[in-house]
């Protein structure tokens, strides 16, 4: 799966959790800085991502995630390790 496909699916997952805080979510949108997701909502997003992509996301790796694009890269990395 290429990066843009993952980004598109991730935007679909994050949109209901973000509850309309940002009108247009892109690869460069900040997950906590712009969407304002607190730690609980980030965990909701992780669970949704894990179900969607059938992967396990290590929570320690989330420290490096700032944007939707960063998270998409982590998903690709996790999917590679799980494959």
């Amino acid at each position: 799966m290429n990066h843009q496909d993952v980004v598109a699916q991730l935007i679909e997952l994050v949109t209901p959790i973000a509850e309309g805080r940002v009108a247009v979510i892109t690869e460069n949108t900040g997950i906590t800085s712009e969407l304002g997701l607190d730690s609980l909502r980030v965990m909701d997003l992780v669970v949704a991502v894990e179900d969607q992509f059938d992967i396990s996301v290590p929570i320690n790796a989330l420290a490096e995630v700032r944007t939707v694009g960063d998270f998409a890269s982590l998903i690709q990395k996790s999917a590679g390790e799980n494959a």
Binding site: M43, V46, V47, S56, V57, P58, I59, N60, A61
Partner: peptide
């Protein structure tokens, strides 16, 4: 403890 360990930490339901 997991943070201190620096291990890959995976949550299950």
């Amino acid at each position: 403890g997991c943070t201190l360990a620096g291990a890959n930490t995976i949550r299950f339901r």
